[in-house]
Amino acid sequence: MNEWFGLLGIVIASASILALRQPLVAILDSVLERLDSRFERQVWCRQSDTAMAVTLLFPGLGILAVFGFAPLIYALYISLFDTRAGAFAGPGNYVRAWHDPEFWGGIRVTIYYAIGTIPATLLLSFGVAWLLFRIGRGRGFFRTVYFLPYVTSAVAAATVWRVLLRPHSGYVNALMEALGLPTQLWLIEQRGVLHLLTNGWIGPEVGPSLALCCIIAFDIWHASGFGVVIFLAGLTAIPRELEEAAIVDGARPWQVMTRVVLPLLSPTVFFLAIVSAIKAFQAFNSFYALTNTARSTDTQNLVIYIYSQLYESQNYGYGATVAVCLCVAIVGLTLVQWRVLGRWVHYE
């Protein structure tokens, strides 16, 4: 019953705010004005807006410091301990990681996953956005459809995929059978996809496993909509005249694309590349929801490995060590992208 009163309160409150809009705005204005003049009277504000900045930054940065930044310091700190033995280990955990095949396996899976998802997502979403940009009618409809997976929770969507991809009696296998194709184990197939495609000519441990490819496919499906929307926004922002001018000058369609559209779109590509790289290195939900964690090494990326070290083996120090390595890798990768791609980015 309590919750209904709460709801009622919200409704009444919002209704009265709407009704009293004008006087409220006036009050707000005068309050803001007063606050502003307070800030400006501060002596130390003459050269800069420090007092104002501290006030505005405090809520957001306070929370980030406690829940975003402190964990990093904590991870750095406990990575120097052998937490199982309860002793200071110095660089011991880092040395252990260097010799740990599962750590390197995790890196391998992370890299496969990044290579599998980032270019495919970028290309696919650019292609779709480009087509949407060309057609006139139905753009809104298609954009909505393509964005749909992105708004659904990974847990719910992965549940659907898991059932569809059941190894013995899933819908996808029924489809394969109907098409006369060999059925597959999908999410529990640990052999390499190259091995399966070449009929055993390539060794089963080479390349990503079919299970990993299923996860990659899931994430391409799940995340492409984000790219589509952003590319579309970028494309719409390109002045039409530029393109038309190029066409009048006799540029062929692909020349328009490479000489006009892509350079103008480069900030968008740059942004998406950096964001999706960070996301790819932090991927967890799809791995966790599609496979059972820690069951098989072929779908164990670094984050899953960290997770199992922290929560299943209770190896806090070592888990933190791997986490620190991962953070360093992400920072490094972002800096490299910044340097390499940044040179190519074209700002008006």
Binding site: S48, T50, M52, A53, V54, F284, V303, L310, A323, I330
Partner: peptide, 28 residues
Amino acid sequence: LRFAAKNVLFLLVLATMMIPFEVALIPN
């Protein structure tokens, strides 16, 4: 706004994006 250490603070903010959430679970 103009204030001291603006860029450093902003970089620190961006740095929090680099930490996978799962890692922050225990300290948080």
